[in-house]
């Protein structure tokens, strides 16, 4: 792990749960990771693994009153975001930490113009004059490479294509020059060609503004192309974390290995059998206390391994994993 001084965000033992009719459901079950300064951390995992809940915990946007952070700390800029009062959090959110979401159509207000929504993001965090707001809006629209920015400002979200809408979202998120951007599946709803444009745009702006990025996705291809560090989540926990080159070259946990092997590759022979992970992704009510990948690993676990949580430790230099002796070879 990199020295603490070079991390912009340090998450320690974060536990987030939801109170439901069926009882308390622990969606994020004690995870720890750092986001290195100026770098991109990818969080990869399948649906229900807790990757979005992690993002909502950091930004304190958990659905209320059901979602709660039950333990752990999130250190950002010398503050613990878990303890910060909510009105203080509003000054940080959208200003120092920003977020973009998967579906820009639902994240944008359909009855307000793009310009008004951009202006809101500026005015909430500074006392600019009308002219200044307009000037910086146009500048930001140019930065995210939207053609004819003056005209687009007076349009509504439905008048824009999916890719353009995601650009507007990025413009809103970055207009206050945040130190940390959390992008939750920013390209999942887009075509591959537009996805490539958006990923490159985020990377360029990151370089220009020197910000750190958490990129949440289920697509290992996207992770491989843009991230520096990768954290793999499964069933509410981190199972492995390493530098991107290290992780793809030497995956240590059986789940990471299975995921990497199951993707059809462009150089594979057509119509041959793919390696597959057996079984299904567990639902939150079925999370086990011990190794959660045990039943899908195809490897025999002892009773003790099923009931005691394996420690998340460094198993090689800068390479950490949930050290189940069966799943980590």
């Amino acid at each position: 792990m990199t020295a603490a001084s070079s991390s912009i965000l340090e998450v320690r033992d974060l536990v987030t749960a939801f109170d439901t009719d069926a009882g308390r459901m622990t969606a994020v079950d004690g995870i720890s990771f750092n986001v290195p300064q100026g770098k991109t951390l990818g969080i990869v995992g399948e649906s229900g693994c807790g990757k979005s809940v992690t993002a909502f915990s950091i930004t304190r946007l958990l659905p209320q009153p059901h979602g709660k952070i039950l333990g752990g700390s999130i250190r950002f800029n010398g503050q613990d975001l878990v303890q910060v009062p909510i009105d203080e959090m509003q000054k940080i959110r959208g200003n120092e930490i920003s977020m973009i979401f998967q579906e820009p159509m639902t994240a944008l207000n359909p009855v307000q113009t793009v310009g008004r929504q951009l202006a809101e993001a500026i005015l909430l965090h500074s006392g600019c004059s009308k002219a200044e707001v307009l000037a910086s809006s146009i500048e930001m629209m140019k930065k995210v490479r939207i053609p004819e920015p003056e005209q687009r400002l007076s349009e509504y979200p439905h008048q824009l294509s999916g890719g353009m809408r995601q650009r507007v979202m990025i413009a809103m998120a970055l207009i206050n020059k945040p130190k940390l951007l959390i992008a939750d599946e920013p390209t999942t709803a887009l075509d591959v060609t537009v996805q490539a444009q958006i990923l490159e745009l985020i990377a360029d702006l990151q370089k220009e503004m020197g910000m750190s990025v958490i990129l949440i996705t289920h697509d290992l291809g996207v992770i491989a192309q843009v991230c520096d560090e990768v954290a793999v989540m499964y069933a509410g926990r981190l199972v492995e974390q390493a530098g991107v080159f290290d992780l793809f070259a030497r995956p240590r946990h059986a789940y990471t290995q299975g995921l990497l092997e199951s993707i059809p590759r462009l150089d594979s022979t057509p119509k041959t059998k793919l390696k597959a992970i057996q079984g299904n992704v567990p639902g939150i009510a079925d999370f086990k206390p011990g190794c959660r990948f045990a039943d899908r690993s195809g490897r025999e676990h002892t009773e003790a391994q099923l009931n005691t949580r394996p420690p998340f430790v460094e198993i090689a230099p800068n390479h950490r994993a949930e050290n189940c002796p069966v799943c980590v070879a």
Partner: peptide
């Protein structure tokens, strides 16, 4: 060209498509 290849050693500069369908 736009396919993200799941191998970090195969990163490349892309000829990005402009515009939308």
């Amino acid at each position: 060209d736009a396919i993200p290849i799941a191998d970090p050693t195969q990163r490349r500069e892309r000829q990005l498509l402009r515009g939308d369908v």
